[in-house]
């Protein structure tokens, strides 16, 4: 880096997304503008404070109408932040920038509602029935909670922690995709196998005095700790 460039302030550019309202004008423009007026009369603040752009695909064949359209919109207080669907050079007048890469959000009025964030899928799985022998519950995205017991010969596999509000008789495999922070909790420990992030203990290696007791298991460095919860 040169001395000159270091002396200039560094301009930080941030990304932020807004949902733009897209007008789709169609010839004949008079009729279309009448419709727009009627709509703006019903909800005058409809376009206030929102980025508005125009999809001019329908006017691509008649570029001479575009200049008039921009004036008509400006007269109604609508300033376009961009256009799409037309070749700017074909029009001859100064146009807002051509934008690409837009994605459809929702139809019409719905887009004007303050946009709800996309629903976040819960990263936990709740089962309020026992997990029976031979059943395998695999949930890589997060924690698994079982309100009931996990039978001998059943297994629960989770990306996060495992919580058993009953007797754990089968296998519990927590932190399956490399989560060493995951833990296993159960109200009564009779497990055949406990595993966290690839480290495991079989029933034979679990302290006998913990059998039948409330317990938890976690990783401490390279070894698994199993301890009572009381």
């Amino acid at each position: 880096m040169t001395a000159a460039s270091r002396s200039r302030p560094f301009v930080r550019v941030r990304g932020r997304s807004f949902i733009a309202l897209v007008l789709v004008p169609e010839p004949p423009l008079d009729a279309w503008l009448d419709g727009l007026d009627a709509q703006m009369q019903r909800s005058p603040a409809y376009f206030a404070g929102k980025p508005v752009m125009a999809d001019l695909t329908a006017l691509a064949a008649v570029p001479e109408l575009v200049a008039g359209l921009l004036e008509a919109l400006a007269a109604r207080g609508i300033r376009l932040v961009g256009i799409e669907g037309i070749e700017p050079n074909a029009v001859g007048v100064e146009l807002p920038p051509l934008l690409t890469g837009g994605r459809t959000v929702a139809d019409g009025i719905a887009a004007s509602v303050p946009e709800a964030p996309p629903p976040v899928e819960p990263a936990s799985l709740l089962l309020d029935q026992p997990v029976r022998s031979g059943q395998s519950v695999v949930f890589p995205r997060g924690d698994v909670t079982v309100v009931g017991s996990v039978g001998s010969g059943a297994e629960v596999v989770a990306g996060g922690s495992i919580h058993i509000y009953g007797t754990l008789r089968g296998r519990a495999v927590a932190g399956m995709s490399g989560n060493a922070q995951a833990r296993i909790f159960c109200r009564r420990l009779e497990a055949e196998l406990l595993a966290i992030d690839g480290l495991y203990r079989t029933a034979d290696d679990i302290e006998p005095q913990l059998r039948g007791k409330p317990a938890q298991a976690w990783l401490s460095g390279d070894s698994m700790v199993v301890a009572g919860l009381d």
């Binding site: 029935q129 022998s133 039978g151 059943a154």
Partner: peptide
Amino acid sequence: RDSDRIIGMLDS
């Protein structure tokens, strides 16, 4: 244990 397995199948 076999009964537990069968109960799971009755439920599924």
